[in-house]
Nucleic acid binder design. Sequence first.
DNA 1: AGCACGCCGACT
DNA 2: GTCGGCGTGCTC
Length: 819
Amino acid sequence: METANIAKLAVAAAPYAIDKPYDYLIPEGMEVSVGVRVSVPFGRGNRRSEGVVLAIGEGEKFPGLKQILSVLDRESVLDRQEIDLALWMRQRYFCTLYDAVKTILPAGLWYQFREVYRLAPGIEYTAAYAAVQEIPACAEMLQLLFAKGGSAELSEMKEVCGEGCVSALKTLTGKGVVVCESRAQRKIGDKTRRMVELALSAEEAMEIAESRRRAAPVRYEAIRLLCSAGRISASELCYFTGASSQTLRALEKAGVVRFSQEETLRVPEIAQSGEAAPIVLNEEQEEAYRGLLSLMEGGRAEAALLHGVTGSGKTQVYIRLVQEALRSGKNAIVLVPEIILTPQMMERFSSYFGAEVAMLHSALRLSERYDQWKRIRRGEVRVVLGTRSAIFAPLRNLGLIVMDEEQESSYQSENPPRYHTRDVAKFRCAQDGALLLLGSATPSVESAHWAREGVYHHFFLRRRYNEKSLPRVMLADLKDEVRSGNSGVISALLRREIEQNLQRGEQSILFLNRRGNSRMLLCGECGFVPECPRCSTALTYHSANGRLMCHYCGHSEKANETCPMCGGIMKRVGVGTQKVEEELRALFPGVGLLRMDADTASGEHETLLSRFEREKIPILLGTQMVAKGLDFENVTLVGVLAADLSLYVDNYHAAERTFSLLTQVVGRAGRGEKTGRAVIQTYTPGNEVIVSAAEQDYDRFFESEIRMRRIRRYPPFADLFTCTISGTDETAVLRAAVRLREELKLESQQEPIRSSDPEVLGPAPAPVVKVDNRYRYRILWVGKNDKATRALLSYTLKKFALDRQNRGISVFVDCNALE
DNA sequence: AGCACGCCGACT
DNA sequence: GTCGGCGTGCTC
């Protein structure tokens, strides 16, 4: 057989069941390199699809081999190591190669940047011409620029002068006659932004978009971007997709999108506060640092757990290690949970690392994120500080990856492929022989276990930095309150403590351990509860817009005052922060109170917090978001209103999460000079988790929890694979689920899988059976997440998808999912 | 998944 | 005769 130049591609159009590297012929004269995106024909209809070049080589020119149509990137966007990472992610997370590639690369890469070229400031007409007179293409460009009044978009120039203008412009910028800027850079400084988000579920919006894909391609692109980016500013949406404001207005009219205002989050300027003071470590920090340093210098891809109590100065150790990594010519990534990346933290890093550090946080716009990616890729950056997705930063030659508060669930991606940052970090460390440092005040049970088993190295910081004593913790038994006739949310004990603080002029933080503001409406007459028309859940009432919303599919409707069934008056039920607020106002009339929860607009948070600190408002009431990273001198009391709420959730992480949360909340008290107090209200004061949290005793918590995990065969003793089977016809879904279970049961008996003694359970309905008109059932595989098991599950999944019996039914697998 | 091919029944 | 229903099979 004749041979030819062949490229192996990851193709976007290939679904999971048939995904593999596809061979394509590289046409004569086409320059293709590994890591570039290309356009290819795919399938019987030869529809255009995007692909990424994984490898190039001589290969068999078999009949039916198709050609690459065009190359989409001038330079490659993925290097060898990133391709290996994508290959690994495919088998680890049961996704397609292209899904993995999309996850690794920044979203901005998929949208066209409108590059604007303008004459360099201070350049005269004659001087500009003199600089390029011998090159006709350049002169033409200049003419066009002058005709346009000094600046023009790249797309306009391409229209007039063709593709040749790209190289001409390169010459012009090289000579300093013309400068290039992207529109995003000019947008900086906006005070408020008009934001756009989908008003429908992503699936529904895509369906509408797909149906008119050909007739309205711009709308299609706009909706696709909204599906992947969530909320995004209107200008950015137009910018990336070429949509006009009319397009957006039409989409709003059609009910596909909605608008809102958001205050621009200030991205802190890199405050060049001169030379940062050298870090002085105490004895304990020094010891941990020495140990970690020698691991890092060993270059053997080790993992270590740094268990340091709140306020023990883990960050100093991180910074010292990063400094040493840089000194030995290596680079470092520092990861923090979603909510923790505060301006203070960023200032701290930029004072130590100046322009060599790149921050990747949620306030960055798509274009800014993309710019950071380019800076990192070009090698202008040696340290990356960021949240989850920063683990994919294109930083080479890693010496160190730090994951602060490694137990946080925000390290697991909530959309597929649902990678865990820790796993990706391990893979990257293995590639570069880097040290993975997991830091935490309350490590995940898994990590603590591996540290105790010697799989991870183990270091401790037991002393709080300036020897501050821990807050005094009191438990309030809510059962007693009910018995003594207190029907409210605030126990007598907590009430007394708040009063004391009011007298002393000290501040209190009250924490409601509940996700968002989950209240619903209920008819007082007939008991009717408004439910989502597409999902099997009650709708949540949002006071901010007076609407009922579904958390699963995004459905929203106006809330009625009266019951649509019987005309009775609708009442609000559920313990939300608003209800607590009412109670507090009745208990402490005239006392200043701030409430912060999912209902308060996201832009407001920082203002609220700074008001709380500056104006010394006595009480701050909030959800999850007040628990993390807040440091206020004058706060001496913390109240946890319902400690049990997160405890009895059907999830193997519930105890760990509750312990971690309680520890963090309690740690908010007494950060200043005065010793703090904490009141934990609970219905189960004898519960091990509550007691060990109250005593701030991690070891006690760990011992009881690890015993439980062993008995129940939960991680780290086994891995839980959840296969979710979904479709619109409930009985068909159930039948398919049963077939899948039988198949898996059969496979679980085969060697070598059999030896790890896997169990197959289910099918059971998912916690919310119906989401978006699709019924979801789950099958659980309890076993070991090893290569053999993954290969088996992958094989079974593919077989299932290709089986004609399972038409219209989809299935996906998650391992140790947190939800 | 998404698309073409193909083999049947009801139309201009 | 042909248009279009959906069942079947393949994707370099």
